[in-house]
Write a protein that binds this DNA or RNA. Structure first.
Length: 656
RNA sequence: GCCGAUAUGGCUCAGUUGGUAGAGCAACGCAUUCGUAAUGCGUGGGUCACGAGUUCGAGUCUCGUUAUCGGCUCCA
C-alpha cells in the first residue's frame, strides 16, 4: 500500500503502482488544486509514473507552469521560515512565486538590513529546514481568528492585508514546521524536494507598491529539485547576459553614454549610426508605400503648445521643464512628444474629407524626464527617436488604418524573424463602469474598441484584452517584447485619440459640407529607434542580417604581400555597394579569421597569391559555413543579390 | 526619486589585516610573410570615478558627490 498525506493533513491509502495522475483524480477538486504534480522520495517524476510502497509523495512536476509556481511559492515560504529563525522580530510582507523563482518582502526590526553577505547563511538555513522535509499543511481560518493569529505573531503587514483585502470564509493559512503564513496556495506537499537554492538579489520594494509607504527589503531567489538544474539555470543566465545589448553595443562600437553629456542620453557611434540609418530607411520605404507623408518639426515647442494639448497639465512634471528666455519673456519646452506639432500640420490649411486619412509621419526625437533609477541602456533613455506618425481620419476609417499599421508591424517582424512567442499584443479597453474617467461618447468608444479587436482578429493576432487600461482619450493596442533575461519592454503602440483634435479645434469639411472633427490615431509601430535597436541586438546576439549589419565583408590578405590586392577588392566591392573592410594587420590568417569571427562580420574573403593572380576571392561564411572560390565580381553580385532578396519583403503594399 | 550593490590602464579583471599599483587582451615597435578560430620578442599606457576626512602613510577605512548595475515606483 502507498500511504499519502495531503496538504490538508488527510491521509489516504492507494494500491502499489498507482500513478500520480490517478491520485490527483481521486481527490476533491479543492485538494487537487494543490496536487500539482508528484515526486517520490525526493526524486522528481512524471505524473504517470507508478508509485510504490513506502513512497512519501511530494506533489510536484517542475516543467509544468503551475508546478513551478507551487514549488517556488513553497520556496518563498521556506525563505520566510529561515528568516524567522535567523532574525527574530522580522516582519513579512508579500512573498509570491514569480516567472523565474520567488521573492519575499521583509522588514527587520530596529532598521537592521539584510546584506548580500548574509545570503550564504540564509541559503544554508533554508536547506537545513528543507532537509527536515516538513509537510505543508493547509488550514481554513475565519477572518477574526486570522487577524488575532497574525497580530499575536506581530505581523502587522499581514494583519493590514487581511483587514483590507480579504473576506471572511476565503482565508487560508499554510504551515510548515514552526512557520505559518497567510496564503491562498497552492503549495507542494512537503519541503523535502527543494534541493538547490540560490538567493539572487536584494532590492528595495515599497509596501503595497506605494512609494509613500514603508520600503521593505525584497529578497529574490530561485530553487530547484536538483542541484544540476540550478547549475544549468545559472549557466543559461550567464549565456543570456552575453546577449545583453549594453555589452554587445560596447563590443561592436554601436553606441555609448558619457557622464559629461549626461545620463540617459545615448550617443550613436559611427557603426551604430550606420545601422540605425539603414533601419530608418527601411521603415521610411515601407511607410511611403503606405501613404505616409514625412515632416520635420522642431525639437522644442512653446509651453503654450503643451498647455493647449493638455500634456503640460498631465505630464508636465515628467518633461524637461520650460526654458525661459528673459529677453522676450517666452517659455519653451523640449518636446516630449510629436503629436501637438503634427496637429498644427493638419491645421495648416482647410481639409476636405477627400484627403482623409491624412498620415503625417516623422522620425521625431523627443525628450522625457525619466527618473534616474529607471534608465536602462538603450531601452529606457531620456532622449529618443520615435518612428512616429499621426493619422487624421474619419471614425469609419479607424479599423482600416489599424489594419494597415498591423500590416507594417507584421512585415517588419517577419523580416527580422520575430515570432508570436517573442511578441505579445495587448488591447487596452476602457472600464465601462467608470465612464467619467474617459472622454468621448459611448458610441465612439464602442466603435473604436471593436475596430481594434476586429483588426487584430483579421490579421490573426492573438491579443490579450485588458479592461480599464485604456488612456483617458481612447483605446490602444500595444506590442511588447522580452529582453534576454525576460524583462518586458513595450515597443510599438497604436492609440485612438478623440481628445487632441478637439483641443486643437481640428476639422475637415464632410461630404455634406458640414465641419467635422477628425479622429486622430497615434502610431509608433516600433516605439523608438533606441529600444527597437536594443531588442534587435538581443534578438540577433549582434549577428545582424546582411542588409543591415555595419560591415558585411572582411577582406583578409594571407600576408602583407597581398594587401594591395585586398584593397583593390575592397574598392571594387565598395563601388558596387558592398560594405567591406580590410584586415591588413601583420598577423597569420588563422588569427585574422578568429578575430573577424568574433566581430560578427557575416562574410570573410581570403586573398593570397592564387586569388591575386586570378582576380578571385576565397569566400568564408561567418560561423565556418560555406566556403567557395569565385571572382570578385561574382562575389559582389552574390552579396547584392542576397541583400535584394532580403529586402524584397519591404516592397509590401497595404492589403486593404 | 527610493532601497541595495559596484566604480582599478581602451576592454575583462587581480590587488591578502591600510605600507605608495599588477595580469590577460587591445595599442605601438621589431622579427616573421604565413591558406580558414590566438606566431614570437619588446615598448608605451593608470591622480585606482570625483571631493573631503581619519592616519606617519589610503586603491584599501569614513562621509559626501557623480555614474553604472539589480529591483521598487513611474512610463505620453
Amino acid at each position: 500500500m502507498v500511504k499519502i498525506q495531503f496538504p490538508d493533513g488527510s491521509v489516504r491509502e492507494y494500491e502499489n503502482g498507482v500513478t500520480g495522475m490517478q491520485i490527483a483524480e481521486s481527490i476533491s477538486p479543492a485538494l487537487a488544486r494543490n496536487v500539482v504534480a508528484c515526486g517520490v522520495n525526493g526524486e522528481t517524476t512524471e505524473l504517470n509514473r507508478p508509485i510504490n510502497e513506502d513512497a512519501k509523495i511530494a506533489l510536484y512536476r517542475f516543467e509544468d507552469e503551475e508546478g513551478k509556481h507551487a514549488f517556488w511559492h513553497t520556496s518563498a515560504h521556506l525563505l520566510a521560515e529561515a528568516l524567522q529563525e535567523l532574525y527574530p522580530g522580522i516582519q513579512f510582507g508579500f512573498g509570491p512565486a514569480i516567472e523565474s523563482g520567488f521573492f519575499y518582502d521583509v522588514l527587520l526590526p530596529n532598521g537592521e538590513m539584510i546584506k548580500e553577505g548574509d545570503f550564504k547563511k540564509i541559503e544554508d538555513k533554508m536547506l537545513e529546514l528543507a532537509r527536515k522535509d516538513e509537510a505543508v499543511v493547509r488550514q481554513e481560518v475565519g477572518k477574526a481568528d486570522a487577524i488575532a493569529q497574525f497580530a499575536a505573531a506581530g505581523q502587522t503587514y499581514k494583519v493590514e492585508h487581511i483587514e483590507q483585502d480579504l473576506e471572511d470564509g476565503s482565508i487560508t493559512t499554510y504551515t510548515q514546521g514552526a512557520f505559518t503564513d497567510l496564503c491562498k496556495g497552492p503549495h507542494i506537499v512537503s519541503t523535502g524536494i527543494i534541493k538547490a537554492i540560490k538567493l539572487t538579489s536584494i532590492a528595495g520594494a515599497f509596501w503595497r507598491g506605494d512609494a509613500k509607504r514603508e520600503q521593505m527589503q525584497r529578497l529574490y531567489g530561485i530553487s530547484f529539485p536538483k542541484k544540476k538544474m540550478l547549475d544549468e539555470y545559472l549557466v543559461m543566465l550567464e549565456e543570456a547576459k552575453k546577449r545583453d545589448h549594453r555589452k554587445i553595443g560596447k563590443e561592436m562600437e554601436l553606441f555609448m553614454f558619457s557622464d559629461r553629456v549626461g545620463k540617459g542620453l545615448p550617443i550613436w557611434l559611427p557603426k551604430g549610426t550606420d545601422l540605425r540609418l539603414r533601419l530608418t530607411d527601411m521603415l521610411r520605404h515601407i511607410q511611403k508605400r503606405f501613404g505616409y507623408q514625412e515632416v520635420i518639426t522642431p525639437h522644442i515647442g512653446s509651453k503654450n503648445l503643451y498647455v493647449t494639448s493638455g500634456h503640460y497639465a498631465h505630464y508636465g512634471k515628467d518633461s524637461f521643464q520650460p526654458i525661459h528666455t528673459p529677453e522676450e519673456d517666452e517659455e519653451y519646452m523640449l518636446k516630449p512628444m510629436n503629436c501637438p506639432h503634427h496637429c498644427e500640420v493638419f491645421a495648416s490649411k482647410p481639409r476636405s474629407y477627400r484627403e482623409l486619412p491624412f498620415r503625417c509621419a516623422e522620425f521625431g526625437t523627443v525628450y522625457r524626464y525619466e527618473q534616474s533609477g529607471e534608465l536602462h541602456g538603450l531601452t529606457r533613455v531620456r532622449s529618443f527617436t520615435q518612428d512616429d506618425a499621426h493619422i487624421f481620419c474619419r471614425p469609419d476609417q479607424v479599423k482600416g488604418e489599424f489594419l494597415r499599421v498591423l500590416d507594417i508591424i507584421q512585415a517588419v517582424f517577419s523580416i527580422f524573424g520575430f515570432n508570436e512567442e517573442q511578441v505579445e499584443f495587448q488591447i487596452s479597453l476602457r472600464d465601462p463602469k467608470d465612464t467619467e474617467k474617459y472622454i468621448g461618447t459611448d458610441e465612439m468608444w464602442a466603435t473604436a474598441e471593436q475596430a481594434i479587436i476586429d483588426a487584430c482578429a483579421e490579421r490573426g493576432i492573438n491579443a490579450r484584452q485588458e479592461t480599464g487600461e485604456a488612456a483617458f482619450y481612447g483605446p490602444k493596442l500595444d506590442c511588447m517584447v522580452k529582453d534576454v533575461i525576460g524583462r518586458r519592454w513595450q515597443l510599438g503602440t497604436i492609440q485612438v485619440d478623440y481628445n487632441l483634435p478637439m483641443r486643437f479645434k481640428l476639422e475637415y469639411t464632410a461630404d455634406d459640407n458640414t465641419k467635422k472633427v477628425p479622429v486622430m490615431v497615434h502610431r509608433a509601430p516600433f516605439g523608438s529607434m533606441e529600444r527597437f535597436t536594443a531588442v534587435l541586438i538581443e534578438h540577433t546576439a549582434g549577428h545582424f542580417p546582411l542588409w543591415l549589419t555595419p560591415d558585411q565583408v572582411a577582406i583578409l590578405p594571407i600576408s602583407e604581400k597581398y594587401n594591395d590586392y585586398a584593397e583593390k577588392v575592397q574598392d571594387y566591392l565598395n563601388t558596387v555597394g558592398v560594405r567591406a573592410v580590410v584586415d591588413n594587420r601583420n598577423e597569420k590568417i588563422g588569427r585574422k579569421v578568429r578575430d573577424n569571427e568574433i566581430k560578427r562580420i557575416p562574410y570573410m574573403v581570403i586573398v593570397g597569391e592564387k586569388e591575386a593572380a586570378e582576380g578571385t576571392v576565397a569566400m568564408r561564411q561567418q560561423g565556418g559555413g560555406e566556403q567557395a572560390v569565385m571572382t570578385m565580381e561574382e562575389f559582389g553580385k552574390r552579396i547584392n543579390d542576397e541583400v535584394a532578396k532580403m529586402l524584397e519583403a519591404t516592397n509590401i503594399k497595404p492589403r486593404d
